[in-house]
Write a protein that binds this DNA or RNA. Structure first.
Lengths: 352, 352
DNA sequence: TTCGCTTGCACAATCGATGGTGCAGAAACT
DNA sequence: AGTTTCTGCACCATCGATTGTGCAAGCGAA
């Protein structure tokens, strides 16, 4: 009856067992049997057999035939970061609720890796690809386009496909303003007391830096050229930038605008081994939200990008017929220090 | 020459173009052509054509034929957590270096979802499955086994397949001891001043709770029954547990053992809106490492599970012929407060 | 009784790649 | 020259599911 170490049952096995043809079995199992005018009793027989023999569809075969796979891809720069991991979590929920299978991979912010990854995913006939924070979105587009793969950019925009991104300018404006206002009028911040760290030459960083400049200039009157220290998206490079500045000035500035939580880890590395008092006067604004980061011993104002809204919008767009590429801005949210917000995990049920 | 919107080139297309048979083309493209005694010049011709026409292998077709896919699966409870996201990051590195394609999915700590997910992955003929923190590892095993899918448990052990897990007892022992010793002899901790929060009825929690009990009893002399508050792996349930305790005692205990970083987020929620001073005397031990968590305004001693070692060991084991299931313990590391450790992201190259 | 429609299903091609087998023609050997 | 051994490749079945098409049996109507 049951086949222990045997291979998995196929429609051909069930065909023999049921006395029906493989095509009938197939129709019954994939739900198209009414359309094919299969008798109810036949269907029941086959479904019973399928159950008993633990039949499961070979999705590679189906995918080959249909040239779709039911897989939906999410390409991240990295996993190990709360912004991107919450993206993955949210994405999974959406894909699952559509009855498809989420596949999350990271491409390390490497344009070459991004293209290779896209190619691999295409080879598996994934149905859609969500490209998050790609270094070279248009390069990926060039891979997806000829393959007829629907794709959309998230977090960093491309010119060849729709993009859903944070309103980085507005977010950085809010954040810069909040940092400055945090000092009040008694002891206002001077231009050389607020620095920006992190980011590289991508759209998000450029927007944020522009907003930083403009807002700083508007509110504290000036912004010296050395106020921005690009240090990539690397904790260690950021650490070295802090060390260099500290070396130069003999102290840290009173206020920091940190371009991402990854760069913020550079600050942590700078803090490690140094006395806590050294940071007691510090005020930090961080473009990204991390619940633990929000409770550091000094005020950390954060910007939470609206991941849920971005993913939702992306799903809306990706199904639409292709039009000329547009970029959609999603306004992020300013988060006051010491805030523990709900996240995608909160929708999961849990038992104590 | 090039086919714009056309479908992707197949070996049949190249077969026509090159004048060779499909099987020859196939052999050339998958590298087995020397074994098949294909002339070098023939191979070159075909490779040239493949290049020119942007041929890429249809991996679903290959997978169907070979009944393997080149996909390696990682099943996580959730993405949005530094422990699991670092697991994903590390895993990806390993899989990539083996020339395969990582697929990361989460199953929400739901036994049913875990089994469904495994089944889906099997339907895609994934080659191996790494099962992380599964609620019901043996249930997943029952799915993998008949399908002939190599699998291994990580983080939470199963009885039916090899498991690689943290030495939870030792980790919790170290952590409990470190918490207690943190108070020194001047003002030693009393039994009713140290509570454990979080966890559920799984192997890891049981071990940790056992070590907590034993160590606490050994070092502070006793451990009242109410010293352990299971609150699942949910921030909100943990929050409510804190609130209940606070309600009861009118204050927080001086020391907390928190079972995971997810539960730690429950503490953050408790902190939100309450004055920082309320926590100035608190000492926390957290079983999990989160770089931001390490720098909270009170001492947070953390346990970092050795993800790299666990993944490495798991890869070693999964290739070996199946023997009787064994559990391998990987010793975690005690992390002093205010430590910013390197993680899997540090191996990535970055540009400023 | 015969025509025509419906019901219920079987047949067979197809998706793209793989790999066992077989077979010409050339080269080597007797 | 005849036989054996390589070379170099073509042929074809196969993986499992899908789907357009065809067709026999059943049934009602004329």
């Amino acid at each position: 009856m049951d086949q222990r170490v045997k291979k998995k049952a196929t429609i051909y096995d069930l065909s023999v067992l049921s006395g029906s043809s493989p095509s009938t079995v197939s129709a019954v199992l994939n739900g198209t049997w009414r359309k094919r005018r299969i008798k109810e009793s036949t269907a029941e027989t086959i479904l019973g057999l399928a159950e008993r023999h633990q039949y499961t569809t070979n999705l590679q075969a189906r995918g080959l035939r249909r040239s779709r796979s039911g897989l939906v891809g999410l390409m991240l720069p990295v996993h190990d970061n709360r912004y991107f991991s919450s993206m993955a979590q949210t994405f999974e929920g959406h894909v699952r609720s559509r009855g498809q299978c989420p596949v999350v991979v990271s491409a390390s912010r490497d344009p070459e890796e991004e293209r290779r990854t896209a190619e691999t995913l295409i080879s598996y006939s994934i149905d859609q690809l969500f490209i998050v924070g790609a270094t070279d979105p248009d390069g990926v587009h060039e891979i997806c386009e000829p393959a007829g793969l629907k794709h959309i950019n998230i977090d960093l925009p491309g010119a060849k496909a729709h993009s859903v991104i944070s309103d980085n300018y507005e977010g950085a404006r809010m954040l810069t303003e909040a940092i400055i206002r945090h000092f009040g009028n008694d002891d206002p911040l001077r231009p050389d007391e607020l620095f920006l760290f992190g980011g590289r030459n991508d759209h998000a960083s450029r927007e944020r830096i522009a907003a930083f400049h403009a807002t700083k200039k508007a509110l504290v009157g000036a912004d010296p050229d050395d106020g921005v220290q690009s240090s990539g998206y690397s904790p260690d490079i950021t650490l070295r930038a802090f060390e260099a500045l500290y070396q130069r000035d003999g102290k840290l500035p009173r206020a920091l605008f940190i371009n991402s939580s990854i760069n913020m880890e550079g600050l942590l590395r700078f803090m490690a081994g140094r006395p806590a008092e050294m940071f007691s006067e510090l005020v930090v604004g961080c473009y990204d939200y991390d619940p633990f980061g929000s409770f550091l011993p000094f005020p950390v104002i954060m910007v939470r990008q609206n991941v849920e809204a971005m993913i939702t919008k992306a799903f809306e767009l990706i199904d639409e017929p292709t039009t000329t590429p547009q970029t959609f801005l999603i306004t992020p949210e300013l988060i006051q220090p010491r805030s523990a917000l709900k996240g995608p995990l909160d929708t999961l049920k849990d038992v104590a």
